[in-house]
């Protein structure tokens, strides 16, 4: 239980660093994905710790996955557009 919460926190902080430190656009998208995965891990751990079975965090994680897929799709389209018009795949 504590192990998974610590793991989620560590993943969250590493991803936060990644968003600011990386210059490559795809790496930034991946960092944001890892960040939302860390939040999902936190939520699933909370659901496990609840007495009985708590369905709400599962619904939240499922919705969150759908949202993340959509945001990633938009991000990738933007990267493709940027690559086509500016001939670059990194931005400060």
């Amino acid at each position: 239980m504590t192990f998974y919460l610590l793991l989620a926190t560590a993943l969250f902080l590493m991803a936060l660093y990644g968003v600011f430190a990386s210059r490559h656009l795809l790496r930034r998208i991946l960092a944001l994905n890892v960040m939302s995965t860390a939040v999902f891990l936190w939520l699933v751990t909370v659901a496990r710790a609840a007495p009985g079975l708590d369905p709400v965090p599962h619904a939240m994680v499922l919705t969150g996955i759908v949202v993340t897929v959509s945001t990633t799709a938009v991000a990738v389209v933007l990267v493709v557009r940027l690559r086509a018009s500016h001939r670059r795949h990194d931005l400060p």
Binding site: V19, L32, T71, V74, A75, L78, L82, H86, L91
Partner: peptide
């Protein structure tokens, strides 16, 4: 495009 990208990263974060 570049402002849209910056906004995207900021708002998603």
């Amino acid at each position: 495009l570049v402002p849209a990208w910056r906004y995207f990263i900021a708002t998603l974060l």
